[in-house]
Simulated assay, not measured.
Amino acid sequence: MTRLLMLVEGQSEEIFVNQTLAPHLAAHGVYAEPILLWTKRLPAGGGYRGGTSNWGQIRRNLLPLTRDSSAWVTTLLDFYGLPEDVPGYVEAMSPGNPHDRATQLETRMALEIGHQRFIPFVALHEFEALVFCNAQVLAHHFDRADLKEKVEQIVKMAGGPELINHGKETHPKARLQSLASEYKETSDGPTLIDKIGIPVIRAACPHFAAWLERLEALGKET
């Protein structure tokens, strides 16, 4: 089985990998292990995890993973809130197709790390966009029939879950919290995504689908 080390931005992503993505990839011969990003290490040991503040921090977390010669490495980071000093960020914020811009950003990250087993991934525009892939599941989860139409309208106006923009008040997580004040990031998010399921998500999110296809193919690597 192919080993895959996945640097994730927060606890929600870590739970998603353990609960939903890892079992899916295991069926393709890929063993995925989430690694929660360190934000600060203390001299006495331990420290703080979750979130990103600069490219140096991300790079310091990635480089030790690339030294594992028997594993592939990937990331699960949000496009929204990504540090401005990440290679390719300025170009990625210019007008154009968001999917193309995210792919260009990932290409720059790969060049900066320079590791042949590194597959960077930046979620458009935020991990929580995956929750918008099935309005019915969201409405049923919160026992709110009115949410179905509201969520469907948001997705329709944006052009797809991954295209829900990254404005301060309109990025996916902000919209979820506005729609359902009871929404809890680390419990409701991963639970909803697991209920929606990988097949529905990959059909609705082409950028995620392309990444997933690459990860699945690792199981065929010799």
Rank of each mutant, 00 (worst) to 15 (best):
F132E: 00
K195C: 11
P23S: 12
G189Q: 12
A26I: 02
W55Q: 01
I15S: 12
P206K: 07
R117M: 04
A145N: 00
V122G: 04
D188G: 14
L179W: 05
F208Y: 13
E185N: 15
V8S: 11
V131D: 07
G29W: 10
V122A: 03
V17Q: 07
G29R: 03
M6G: 07
G51L: 09
G81Q: 05
L163Y: 12
R60P: 14
Q153S: 09
A217T: 11
D188K: 08
L212C: 11
H171E: 02
S181G: 05
T75E: 05
V151L: 00
I154D: 03
P83A: 02
T74S: 05
Q104G: 08
E169V: 15
R117A: 12
A123Y: 05
V90K: 11
Q19D: 15
S12D: 13
R59P: 03
S53W: 04
E162M: 07
Q136F: 00
G167H: 07
R144K: 08
N61Q: 04
A145S: 04
Q19H: 10
A92C: 03
G10C: 11
A209Q: 01
N134Y: 00
S181W: 06
T222Q: 07
L7A: 06
R175Y: 07
G159L: 03
E9R: 04
V155I: 06
D85Y: 02
E112S: 01
L82H: 07
R101K: 15
N134K: 07
R202F: 07
L218S: 04
K173F: 00
T52K: 14
T74G: 04
E221L: 08
E149F: 11
N61K: 10
G81D: 03
S12G: 02
E14M: 02
K220F: 14
G96E: 03
I164Y: 00
I198F: 04
K156V: 11
N18F: 02
L215C: 12
T222H: 10
H140N: 11
A158M: 04
T2P: 15
H125G: 06
G197P: 08
L179V: 01
Q116W: 03
W72G: 08
W38F: 13
L42E: 14
V90N: 05
A203D: 15
F79S: 09
H166W: 14
L62K: 06
V200A: 14
F121V: 00
